[in-house]
Simulated assay, not measured.
Amino acid sequence: MTETIETTPPIAIVTGGARRIGRAVSLALAAAGYGVCIHYQRSQIDARELADRIAAMGLPVTTAQAELSEPGAAEHIVSVARGLGQLDLLVNNASSFDYDSAEDWTRDGFETQMATNLLAPLDLARHFHAALRDQGTTGSIVNLLDQKLFNINPDFFSYTISKFALSDSTALLAMQLAPICRVNAVAPGLTLVSGDQTPEQFDAVHPQTPLRRGTTPNDVAQAILFLARAPAITGAVLPVDCGQRFAPSQRDVMFQDTHIRGPEDK
């Protein structure tokens, strides 16, 4: 008689996991066999609908509400996720994306962006690493950055600084948290309509990269899944932008509605 050994799915935490790119990431991880802890701030209805969909796939799932800029949020999220089973992956997807410039940024606005885009991922990484150590297992973290880091322009001043800081922190964390935890990042290009961008502007610039297509939420999700399953990769930043970083601009791409030159235009 052959003994059946039951295995439990690995558990992933996805911050901002209920909507937009986070939703695509949550669904891709579930399709790959992960249980998911869906963090949200205000999108309770979306989070519950998504949780029901993942539960219907026969996978463990829960939601965790938290304002990432508040003390104790990271510890709460990791604690909720641990109730599902063995933690394996943390995706720091959530971010604050508000326009400012070097001329008009405010201390309050800057601190809000840094709290959400830098301090929260660092705090989550710390508690996630501690949980892995307690479990006696290894796992990985994937931070979401932005192709703006390779294609710099002054728009979204505080946001960009916070992502530069998170990029360098990715390398520091990879060094410090090894061998228990690998830490990597993906840097998406323009993926969804953002800020004050109109649908017409988005449609005009989204496919006008060297690859003649725009980044999709699933492109980002599959890159995260790749890094989560790549045991020899840590401290890496993977651009997922269809080459958008090779089209320098004085303004953020969301303000463009003109053609970005590709190889055959030269």
Rank of each mutant, 00 (worst) to 15 (best):
A94K: 09
Q244H: 09
T216G: 14
L190V: 14
R23E: 14
L59Q: 11
Q201H: 13
I21R: 13
N117Y: 03
D46I: 04
L132F: 08
Q113M: 05
A81F: 09
H129L: 12
V36T: 11
S79G: 15
P210V: 02
L173S: 02
T234Y: 10
S69E: 05
A131H: 04
S140L: 01
E200K: 09
S96P: 01
G22P: 04
S194K: 07
A30G: 14
G195T: 01
R229H: 15
P217A: 13
P10G: 13
A30Y: 10
V25T: 15
Q197C: 00
L50Y: 09
S95E: 08
R261G: 14
P9E: 15
R213V: 02
D252Q: 08
G83I: 14
V205W: 12
A228K: 12
E200F: 03
C181P: 07
Q65Y: 02
F156T: 04
S69T: 05
T62Q: 12
L227G: 01
Q44D: 06
Q208P: 00
L166A: 06
Q256W: 08
F97P: 00
P154F: 08
D203R: 15
L119D: 00
E75N: 03
A81Y: 10
S162A: 04
Q135N: 11
A204W: 00
S95C: 07
A66E: 04
P239I: 06
F110L: 02
G33C: 05
I38D: 10
S140T: 12
P217E: 10
I141T: 12
I141F: 05
A165W: 04
L227Q: 03
I5K: 15
V253K: 10
